[in-house]
Simulated assay, not measured.
Amino acid sequence: MNITDKNVIITGASSGIGAAFAKAIIEKGGVVYGIARRQERLQELQRDLGDRFHPVVLDITDEPAVSTWVEATFSAGNYPDALINNAGLGKFGNVEDLSLDDWHTMMNVNLNGVFYLTRKIVPMMKQNPAHCHIINIASVAGLMGNPTISGYNVTKFGLRGFSDALFKELRYDAIKVTCVFPGSIATEFFDLAGSSTHPNMMQAQDVASTIVHILETPDNFLIDEITLRPLNPKRPE
């Protein structure tokens, strides 16, 4: 895909790797629809990135709102070209300590929100005469289970399964699907999740450059899954 003038939707765009994705894609000449709930952060990002960044204040777990926005924004002549399902959160703790609210919040954001947006975008991508791409940002927690993150594991394992099925469903519609499994990245995710960090975490801009590379691969070349890790993570105690 030549990213120039392509419409790229990014969820969780107001900070962290979502904001880094937006910056990297706009630097390539793309147009970004950045979705998040924090209006002030989106407006700050628009001031930094310019008119090619369209801030979209939207809760992806609100299915009617998602449907309304997609139908009002895209149509013949203004098709979506890429969707990066990046929004996600983790709530960590032993299974007996994980609250029902935390469980349902992870399921709603990490899985339901991805489904709500994808199911509305796919029909429009099928109408797009160009090749399109869906990138789902999972986690290494979608490849292996670990103590105290069982709920988060469920959502990321689920996203891997959804991505694999979707890739096989859409490949003959000229729609690529890639699932990305990042390890630890230096963002606010770990602070919000209440988990520890380490000095050798990956940097958001490096992850963003990898996403750009995946988008720019030739039309008949698909990276369906990719794992990203820091070379020297925190040593086991």
Rank of each mutant, 00 (worst) to 15 (best):
M1P: 12
N2W: 10
I3F: 12
T4D: 08
V8C: 03
I9T: 11
T11K: 06
T11V: 13
G18S: 02
A19Y: 02
A19M: 01
A20C: 08
A20G: 11
A22L: 02
K23Y: 01
K23W: 01
K23G: 00
I25R: 11
I26A: 05
K28I: 06
V31M: 14
V32C: 00
Y33L: 08
Y33D: 04
G34H: 02
I35F: 08
I35H: 06
A36P: 00
E40W: 04
E40S: 08
Q43V: 14
E44I: 11
L45T: 09
L49W: 07
H54Y: 12
D59G: 05
I60A: 07
E63V: 06
P64E: 08
A65R: 06
V66I: 14
V66T: 05
W69A: 02
W69Y: 11
V70Q: 06
A72V: 00
A72N: 15
T73A: 08
F74V: 07
S75C: 13
S75E: 13
S75L: 07
S75T: 13
N78Q: 12
P80R: 01
P80G: 00
L83Y: 00
I84E: 05
I84S: 02
I84A: 13
A87Q: 12
G88T: 05
G88S: 08
G88M: 08
L89A: 15
L89P: 00
F92K: 12
F92A: 15
D97N: 11
D102C: 03
H104L: 06
H104P: 01
H104Q: 14
N108R: 14
L111A: 06
N112I: 10
G113K: 09
V114Q: 02
L117W: 13
R119V: 14
K120S: 11
I121R: 01
V122K: 07
P123G: 12
M124S: 02
M124E: 09
M125W: 05
K126L: 00
Q127D: 13
Q127T: 02
N128V: 13
A130N: 15
A130W: 10
I134K: 11
I137D: 07
L143H: 12
L143E: 15
M144S: 15
M144G: 07
M144Y: 11
M144L: 12
G151N: 10
Y152L: 12
N153F: 12
L159Q: 09
G161F: 11
S163L: 10
S163E: 14
A165P: 00
A165V: 15
F167G: 11
L170Y: 09
L170I: 04
R171Q: 10
D173G: 14
T178F: 06
C179I: 15
P182Q: 03
P182T: 13
I185E: 04
I185V: 15
E188H: 13
F189E: 01
F190P: 00
G194M: 00
T197L: 02
T197Y: 05
P199M: 02
P199H: 09
N200E: 11
N200R: 06
A204I: 14
D206V: 05
A208T: 12
T210M: 07
T210G: 04
I211F: 02
V212A: 01
V212S: 03
V212Y: 10
H213M: 09
I214Q: 03
E216M: 07
T217K: 05
D224R: 10
E225W: 09
T227Y: 04
L228D: 10
L228C: 02
R229P: 01
P230T: 05
P233L: 00
P233W: 04
K234T: 11
K234G: 11
E237L: 02
E237C: 01
